[in-house]
Amino acid sequence: MTWDQVLVTIVGLGLVPLIVWYFWLKKGTGTHAQGSGSLQEVNIVVKGGYTPDTIIVQQGRPVRLNFLRQESATCSDTVKFPDFNKSARLPENETVAVDLLPQETGEFEFTCQMGMLRGRLVVEGSKAA
């Protein structure tokens, strides 16, 4: 093996764990929904992904997610909440509110139509009063 082959091999094999770490071992910190009264509200920007992409809400209280799509690529023109049987069209540069009522705790995914853009709705049990 020549020195350049050794270099290519080291760099190539070194990139593999880097890719695994960067794309798969991410830990979403999550954004807590804000809201006065019983409504929990979060604004989400849609641009190559959902920002924020992890939304933490309380169980049993209505949730309003305000989506604002800031890109023209039609990939992201629909957001789907399969577990809630809900979907919404997101016209460019328009805020679209999606209302949900999470009855159960757990993690629920929301995606674009192709499932390329992904976000999570984390429903936590209501804290004891």
Partner: peptide, 10 residues
């Protein structure tokens, strides 16, 4: 698209 996705680690 790549840059926007990379920022989301996807």
């Amino acid at each position: 698209g790549m840059w926007a996705a990379l920022k989301h680690r996807s």
